[in-house]
């Protein structure tokens, strides 16, 4: 059973590479934000997997809850901050031309 959880955790970690690609390359700032948000929601699940692997789920569940809250607040703050930025348009035009 431990082997299954280890495999799932490694698979989830590898899966984070795809949103990471979007977070690095993504044409606009908001695309990067989507990538970061997706990585965060995968981390919430990954923390519980790690807790099961170490047989300390009771401790890791609190960390996971705090991480979910932090992820939510980070996305809210970042999107509020970027919504009035002029750079969004410029970045697209540079890429598009």
């Amino acid at each position: 059973m431990d082997l299954f959880f280890l495999g799932s955790a490694i698979f989830l970690t590898l899966l984070m590479l795809l949103p990471l690609y979007r977070a690095i390359v993504g044409p606009t700032v908001l695309d990067r934000l989507i990538g970061v948000n997706a990585i965060g929601s995968k981390t919430t699940a990954l923390l519980i997997f790690i807790g099961v692997l170490y047989h300390r789920v009771d401790m890791f569940v609190d960390i996971s809850l705090a991480y979910a809250m932090l992820n939510f607040i980070a996305v809210l703050a970042a999107s509020r901050y970027f919504q009035k930025r002029k750079g969004l348009y410029d970045e697209i035009e540079h890429r598009g031309s």
């Binding site: 908001l30 934000l33 989507i34 948000n37 939510f72 996305v75 809210l76 999107s79 509020r80 970027f82 919504q83 009035k84 930025r85 969004l88 348009y89």
Partner: peptide, 13 residues
Amino acid sequence: TATHAIVDAGVRA
């Protein structure tokens, strides 16, 4: 809520 915040930022930009 988070999804809506990102969409809203995109529309306003």
